[in-house]
């Protein structure tokens, strides 16, 4: 039986005598594929809708694309973009550092720390960011002055709160504290996703609790933290637009200032929209590579990146002309 198959397989390369009809090989089949007219109709309707939308975007003069182009890279807009970017970076970095501390407090065995962390997350997740921002902006009404000194003792220095916490400081404080509450939950979820056996193995080896956290638990937690954190980062980028109510000159507030002067509301909002889309897209690319970094060891073989895939396809294209016998003739 096995020899039959072997000789049959080799047979093709030798002289190829006329073979008797092979009963084991199924006869060539002729299959009429099933038609899907519904799919064609649905796709046509969807494409038509896209076409209409695109046409209207390009031809409606109210979009005023030349005007958009003029303001797209203007100095004021770029300044606003810079403010938005640094607000985002500060919020995410400080927010996640605070959030990690809160998450560690929450999973700690100290009941006071654990409850405090829970209470913080509860409070800052229960109120809208906009309310918190306005609250910090008006903190001067609650505590008119800040005194530095020894508690219950003499006062060394007194500062007016209004001077200390301006719009920018209120924006940073409000954004960071709000971010920390959400970051704490993301980090806690990541810590819980790491198998208990990892901690036990590290303990059995004699690693200190801090080293166990830093070298064993946190790197593995990052695998589930990064996607959620990327989501959060993009949310924060857009969330910073809320500081425009405090008159902080971020991207949105800058274009608002401009259109309050020239009343070209839609084109200027388009400028802001385009910038938000561009930065968000760049962040998504960064997120992809960070996720890949933390996936090492979790997958046996990392899938190729889009760049690697393009490069291998490009190499295949380059190699193609050198291949002998171009297609067109039937295979021998």
């Amino acid at each position: 039986m096995a020899e039959d198959i072997a000789s049959g397989a080799i047979g093709g390369t030798v002289a190829d005598p006329p073979r008797p009809p092979d009963s084991r090989r199924p006869a060539p089949r002729e299959v009429v594929p099933l038609r899907h007219p519904g799919r064609w109709i649905a796709a046509t309707i969807a494409l038509l809708c896209c076409g209409f939308a695109l046409h209207s975007v390009l031809t409606n003069p109210n979009f005023d694309w030349p005007f958009v182009a003029r303001y797209f890279a203007s100095g004021a807009v770029l300044d606003g973009l810079v403010v938005t970017l640094w607000l985002t970076v500060v919020t995410v970095v400080v927010g996640f550092v605070l959030g990690t501390v809160l998450a560690v407090m929450r999973v700690s065995r100290n009941p006071v720390l654990s409850s405090l962390s829970w209470g913080y997350v509860w409070l800052f997740r229960s109120t809208p960011l906009l309310v918190q921002l306005l609250f910090w902006f008006n903190i001067g009404a609650l505590y008119p002055t800040l005194s530095i000194g020894i508690p219950f003792g003499p006062t060394l220095q007194t500062i007016d709160m209004v001077n200390l916490i301006g719009p920018t400081a209120a924006a940073v404080i409000g954004l960071v504290l709000h971010e920390a509450a959400y970051a704490a939950e993301i980090v806690r979820g990541g810590l819980l996703s790491v198998d208990q056996g990892q901690t036990e193995a590290a303990q059995a080896l004699g690693l200190s609790p801090w080293r166990t956290f830093r070298r064993v638990v946190l790197p593995q937690a990052m695998r589930s933290i990064v996607p959620a954190a990327g989501n959060m980062l993009i949310g924060t980028l857009k969330g910073t637009s809320m500081v425009s109510v405090l008159a902080v000159e971020d991207l949105l507030y800058t274009v608002q200032l401009v259109y309050n002067r020239n009343y070209r509301i839609i084109p200027l909002l388009l400028v802001a929209t385009l910038w938000y889309v561009i930065v968000t897209s760049l962040l998504s690319v960064v997120q992809y590579y960070v996720e890949r970094f933390y996936a090492r060891g979790a997958l046996r073989q990392l899938p190729p990146t889009p760049v690697q895939r393009l490069r291998s396809r490009w190499r295949a294209v380059l190699a193609a002309p050198r291949r002998p016998a171009p297609s067109g003739r039937d295979d021998p």
Binding site: E200, A204, G206
Partner: peptide, 17 residues
């Protein structure tokens, strides 16, 4: 003290990363 005692687990518990 634990460093003086090696332990091998049923589920290996190697650090996968």
């Amino acid at each position: 003290r634990r460093a003086e005692i090696g332990m091998v687990f049923q589920g290996f518990n190697l650090f996968p990363h």
